[in-house]
Design a protein around this nucleic acid. Sequence first.
DNA 1: CCGCAATGGTGGTCAGACCACACATGTCTC
DNA 2: GAGACATGTGTGGTCTGACCACCATTGCGG
Lengths: 208, 208
Amino acid sequence: MISLVSTTKVYLEIIKQLREMITDDGLKPGDKIPSERELSERLNFGRSSVREALRALEMLGLIETRRGEGTFIRDFRDHRLVQLLSTFILQDEKAKTDVFETVELIEIDGLQLALRKMKSKDHEELLNWIRTVDVVRHSDFFYRIIRYADNYLLFRIWVILKEYYESLVPEPAQYSREDYLSLAEALAKRDEAKTLSAYRQLRNLSFK
Amino acid sequence: MISLVSTTKVYLEIIKQLREMITDDGLKPGDKIPSERELSERLNFGRSSVREALRALEMLGLIETRRGEGTFIRDFRDHRLVQLLSTFILQDEKAKTDVFETVELIEIDGLQLALRKMKSKDHEELLNWIRTVDVVRHSDFFYRIIRYADNYLLFRIWVILKEYYESLVPEPAQYSREDYLSLAEALAKRDEAKTLSAYRQLRNLSFK
DNA sequence: CCGCAATGGTGGTCAGACCACACATGTCTC
DNA sequence: GAGACATGTGTGGTCTGACCACCATTGCGG
């Protein structure tokens, strides 16, 4: 007897077809996708299976459902993903040190990229921001840095790790305006050694 | 009239209670959680709602369901992280260059950590492996490096990026045994500059 | 023209049914 | 007695149909 049952779970199959449907129809963030009942009919799966697929996508922040209106594609560039995870991960002590360590590595990576990619206009902008802003928040600073680094993937990774990080420490990191200023100046000079040492001073890193 | 309907969606409420249940009972990765039917009864929600909650958690990689057996807590350190995000992002040409760039950064990060953390025993083992193995596959080599770096989170990120990387290039990266050997030797000498230059030569990187 | 009730479409939830699978148990055969 | 087989039970997997809650639109009456 021929197996009519695909080995993959139905809800994953639905997600797959839904994705094809989205690309085929050229749907973009904000657009509405077909209703649950219509998907159920078009794809030949039960509505409950369709809903399971939608819940999975919703949890990932890829879609948004509004009762009485419909289901919409979200701008997945700002999905959360980790908020949930962080509450789970807290227990493992080793995981924490991994998070700290990795955040610092990624930030250094961002600095390295920024070092190569920042234009003088960017440097002016950054310095100006540091000088005029009320208080230099660490996450705001690196938000800018990694933007300048012009690598969206690295940016995403950093944001995710940052969320972990902030869920692990009681209060957000806070260093002095002077530290950020010297960091930004080292960047403007395109001086790698100075940049790294400025970062280390900021973080009070002991290693090399 | 008193609103009996919680404003939050039921499946989120179920996730919340499930989480409490897990911490209260001290369940750990690998442990089995109550069956769908039991959860449905204990929490007073329909089974389909329970299933929607489980699908959401499964999509995040927090649980694993096995037909006929039950639902189990996963080692959340294996969670997807960037996985889904990138499958959507891949279409973008800019995203590809981001992947390449980021993989290289992460590999350098791994090297830096390994530089600080590897024991002499590790160095022996690595050198021996390079000398005796049939062919030095790039992913195998860095698999080891990032293991030595002893940062599970970084390791997970690397594995994910590597998968994308390999899905973007026709054939896996392949460099000469000598290149890996000089890289390993530089590591053994704990010489940072030599290590980085060896990596750059391997990758034929133009930048500093 | 405005305001409002009716209507239809949408997601949200539930109950029940049946299937597919894994495992433990019991039973039969040799 | 030991091994092979059958069976039962519990589990996740899926579908159906029903009903509720909410939203937007329509169209009617003022």
